[in-house]
């Protein structure tokens, strides 16, 4: 038993080795090259920036693990943040408004799942269509007057407040991380998610209702996107119609950097968290080093390729070496 667990730890440690190395290298490089990097203020700031993509990416990781994809999360984030803001602007109680936003995100996700499983439309197309629909709905909401001046002090506290010197969004992300970690690793739901992604037919023959697992996964993704949207609207205290655009790509990148397979059957909650922090680190570092906008994009792209490459290399080494 003991030798077994030890071996297991060794193998798992190797699987996340690549991303951790990249994280450390970036960290050390930035500490050396910018005197502003390693300050409490900058690090909190950086963590705080990673939270929004991270929340979305947790959900996307579940979806990818079943072998699906969710392109609608960016728009869902915008729409649900917008709806919560709009409701509060029109006098709804803050908690009710938040609940409504979360519920809407969950329903949209479940709807995605239904379309995919019942109509057998590919996840790519179904969620791509939802990307447009949700964005369009948000534009309708903002057509007459912009959504702003809704943030009560309590609402603003969610994303701008501190507790024990640490920003609230970081606490929220930590809580969500723990819940997702538990869901993914310790419940039958998490087990079924990877089973469906590994071999859908075999999972079905093993008595798993693959359709219900898929619907739940998309619902979870919608719920988490909505929570990120509400948090972002609290942070910005206004909702622009384009809020959350292209978040789906950042979220997928964070998940894949963290070792999630785009073909299903493999995912990691810790990996996602590290992936999201790496993305925030890159953007923060480029800010500090005052890199020109064009180079920023190129460098970001290159670092993503390197990060994924290193992770793939170290984890295949772990298997065949």
């Amino acid at each position: 038993m003991n030798t077994h667990t030890r071996k297991l730890i060794k193998l798992n440690a190797r699987e996340g080795l690549g991303v951790s190395i990249i994280l450390v290298i970036l960290f050390v490089f930035l500490s050396v090259s910018s005197e502003y990097f390693l300050t409490v203020e900058n690090i909190t700031n950086l963590l705080m920036h990673s939270v929004f993509v991270m929340l979305v990416a947790f959900g996307v990781m579940f979806v990818l693990s079943t072998g699906g994809i969710d392109l609608s999360v960016g728009s869902v984030l915008g729409l649900c943040g917008g709806v919560t803001g709009w409701l509060m602007m029109n006098g709804t109680n803050m908690w009710l408004a938040i609940l409504a936003g979360l519920l809407l995100g969950t329903l949209i996700g479940a709807f995605n799942g239904m379309i995919i499983t019942r109509l057998r439309i590919s996840p790519f197309l179904a969620t791509f269509a939802m990307l447009y629909i949700a964005r369009g709905l948000l534009l309708l909401f903002t057509i007459n007057e912009p959504i702003r001046n809704f943030a009560t002090p309590e609402f603003a506290f969610l994303a701008q407040g501190y507790w024990l010197g640490i920003p609230m969004p970081v606490w929220i992300a930590l809580a969500v991380f723990l819940i997702c970690y538990f869901l993914f690793n310790s419940t039958s739901f998490g087990r079924f998610v990877v089973a469906v992604g590994s071999n859908q037919e075999a999972a079905h023959l093993s008595g798993i209702s693959t359709n219900s697992i898929k619907i739940r996964v998309y619902a979870l993704s919608g719920l988490l996107a909505a929570s990120a949207g509400i948090l972002l609207s609290s942070r910005l205290t206004a909702v622009q119609p384009l809020m959350g655009t292209s978040y789906e790509l950042d979220a997928i990148a964070a998940a894949v950097i963290g070792g999630t397979s785009m073909f299903g059957g493999k995912g990691s909650v810790t990996g996602v968290a590290i992936g999201a922090i790496i993305l925030a680190l890159i953007s923060n570092g480029l800010d500090l080093l005052a890199v020109n906008q064009f180079y920023r994009l190129i460098i970001t792209g290159l670092i993503i390729i390197i990060a994924v490459g290193v992770e793939r290399y170290t984890s295949t080494r772990a298997k065949t070496a």
């Binding site: 739901f189 990877v194 071999n199 037919e201 075999a202 093993s206 397979s261 059957g265």
Partner: peptide, 29 residues
Amino acid sequence: LHGALIELTVSQNITVASIKRILGQRFVL
């Protein structure tokens, strides 16, 4: 095609069709 969940471990494969039997309280494996 129909039998093995190759990305899952040996123990996960063995229990996947009868997960209820290793489920404790509150869905914890």
